[in-house]
């Protein structure tokens, strides 16, 4: 149970939040080609490294926010060692 620093609530157990995965910009649906759209839907960088990801503070403030987490270590930027 890692600790996720919610910008509103402070450090919370990750089980109190929902991880929404890697941040992927949403193309404009009125102009995006199907190929671009499906890259947005399915393709992920999935690095073993720092990744910007979205969390939803389901059990706390109910805000969406992004953090940077290292998927190789679960270290979160701005937070002390794991």
């Amino acid at each position: 149970m890692i600790v996720v620093p919610c910008p509103n609530c402070g450090p919370r157990n990750s089980g109190d939040l929902r991880n929404c995965g890697e941040l992927v910009p949403r193309p404009d649906p009125s102009t995006a080609s199907l190929v671009e759209w499906r890259e947005y839907l399915y393709m992920r960088k999935n690095p073993a490294d720092w990744v910007t990801e979205t969390w939803y503070c389901r059990g706390g403030c109910r805000r969406y926010f992004t953090i940077e987490r290292n998927t190789a270590t679960n270290e979160i930027r701005g937070q002390e060692a794991s």
């Binding site: 620093p5 402070g10 450090p11 403030c61 002390e80």
Partner: peptide, 13 residues
């Protein structure tokens, strides 16, 4: 030091 950070970052405290 950690506790100090935690208290400072927590809205309810």
């Amino acid at each position: 030091r950690r506790r100090h950070d935690r208290v400072a970052q927590t809205a309810r405290s």
